[in-house]
Computed example of a mutant assay.
Amino acid sequence: MPVVTLDNTITIAMSVKDRHASAKWYEDTLGFEPLYHMDEAGWSEMKTMTEGVTLGLGEQTDPKPGNAVPVFGIADIAAGRQKLEAAGVKFDGPTETIEGMVSTATFYDPDGNAMMLAQDLSGG
């Protein structure tokens, strides 16, 4: 039995230099649909062709290729994090919240690969 139960969504988060230009490229090249741009958070999301899978574009000054991070949706991030920590899973700092949007927490697998939990706070 798993330590936590995830929902049926996943966001693949990547760092990019210009979110708007990258979103346009993904739209024109792969047919992804822009969902939103949250300029104050430096974040954009694109709907992929796969149900429940979105592409997240986080703006950074010097993005590194190969930096994709899977972000798993979860209904209760505090409870999920508590269970994972009790199972010995290492987290990178506290859970971060953007009110009315999302709470996220970065954690690592045994090989140091970063992943995130995300609780949708938008009510949608």
Rank of each mutant, 00 (worst) to 15 (best):
F72T: 08
P70M: 06
Y108F: 00
F91V: 15
A87H: 09
G80L: 10
V69L: 10
A118I: 10
L121C: 02
L84P: 08
F107E: 03
R81V: 09
N67E: 13
T106Q: 06
Y108M: 04
Y108A: 05
T104H: 07
F91S: 15
D109Y: 01
R81P: 00
V89Y: 01
A105H: 00
N113M: 15
I77S: 01
T97F: 03
S103I: 06
N113L: 10
F107L: 05
A75F: 09
I74E: 01
T97L: 00
A118N: 08
G93R: 06
G66Y: 07
L117S: 05
V71K: 01
D62C: 02
F91M: 15
M116K: 10
A87F: 06
T104C: 15
G73S: 12
A105S: 07
K64C: 09
N113T: 14
P63N: 06
G100I: 09
M115L: 13
I77A: 01
Y108K: 03
A87N: 11
L117V: 07
A68F: 08
A105W: 00
I77E: 00
D76M: 12
N113P: 12
A78P: 11
D92F: 11
Q82Y: 12
A75E: 14
V89M: 00
P70L: 08
V102A: 01
D62Q: 07
A114T: 02
A86W: 05
A87K: 05
P94T: 12
T95G: 09
M101E: 03
N67D: 15
F91W: 14
A78V: 14
S103E: 03
S103D: 02
A79Q: 15
T104L: 13
M115D: 02
D92G: 14
F107V: 10
D76I: 13
P63H: 10
G88E: 10
E96A: 14
R81L: 08
G73T: 13
M115C: 06
L117H: 02
G112E: 05
G80W: 03
L84Y: 04
G100N: 04
P94R: 13
A105T: 01
Y108V: 04
G73R: 08
T106F: 03
M116R: 08
I98F: 00
Q82K: 15
K90A: 14
G88Q: 13
R81H: 05
A118E: 08
A87L: 06
A75I: 09
N113D: 12
P94H: 12
V71N: 03
A75Y: 10
A118D: 08
A105K: 00
L121V: 00
D111E: 08
M101D: 04
G66M: 11
A86T: 14
G66T: 05
F107C: 09
A114V: 02
A105Y: 03
A86H: 14
M101C: 02
F107M: 05
M101R: 05
I77C: 06
N113S: 15
L117Y: 01
G93W: 09
F91C: 11
E99S: 09
Q82C: 12
A78D: 15
V89C: 04
I77P: 02
A118Y: 04
A114M: 05
